[in-house]
């Protein structure tokens, strides 16, 4: 960065934007990993059903498979809006 640019640029450095975006998407993709392939479709359908009855955000349904020894637990978390 040149001496003069230092005063000119108020834009955030693009690399830090890239890093933040990557941290979010990578964390999200890792949480869905290792589970069965139908998990994303299942998540979407559950969301559709809930949205039929009440208005929730598109990211209101969190779903993951946890492994505990020989046992697999399907965990579904639904966040309802505050004014409910």
């Amino acid at each position: 960065m040149g001496f003069l640019d230092y005063f000119r640029s108020e834009r955030r450095a693009s690399a830090s934007v890239a890093k933040e975006r990557l941290q979010v998407i990578v964390a999200r993709e890792r949480s869905g990993r290792g589970g069965p392939d139908y998990l994303p479709a299942l998540q979407n359908e559950i969301l559709e059903v809930i949205q039929r009855y009440t208005s929730v955000d598109d990211d209101a349904v969190k779903i993951q498979v946890e492994r505990d020894g020989d046992c697999e637990v399907l965990e579904v978390n639904v966040t309802l809006p505050a004014d409910h």
Binding site: A13, S14, A15, S16, A18, K19, L22, Q23
Partner: peptide, 14 residues
């Protein structure tokens, strides 16, 4: 250095 590219530390951290 100009903040235009992810640093090695960033990539390793992610």
């Amino acid at each position: 250095g100009k903040g235009e590219m992810l640093s090695v530390e960033d990539v390793c951290e992610i």
